[in-house]
Amino acid sequence: MSADPNKLAIFVTSPQNMLHVIGLANAAEKAGKKPMIFFTYKSIHLTKDPRFKVLAEKCGEEDIAICADSYTCEGYDAAADIPAGLSGKQMRTQAFHGALLDECGKYIVL
């Protein structure tokens, strides 16, 4: 698959950038671009922010996921406590980050 020039990868590695993630995702959408977002390591705490559900629903099932191992390592229950806005299919591995690199024409880390 070649990268989609209108798709913006947002790789979230920091737990303190929710405003930037939402601001960038909204701005991308406004500009006719499609955000694809992966939360890993300590950024998965952002799934507990009430704004996360809105973001997840906006992105859609194929284009937002979190690292299930990170979620478990940080003490959450990846089987019984899937974050609001996500399904079990969106509890992913680092391979989803690989998909971001492959599928998105543009990329940013937050």
Binding site: G23, L24, A27, A28, A31, K106, I108
Partner: peptide, 17 residues
């Protein structure tokens, strides 16, 4: 200005954040 950031990202070949 996230709108401006999106414009800049799509105008660049590579972004380092």
């Amino acid at each position: 200005d996230y709108d401006q950031l999106v414009t800049k990202i799509f105008a660049a070949d590579k972004t380092v954040c």
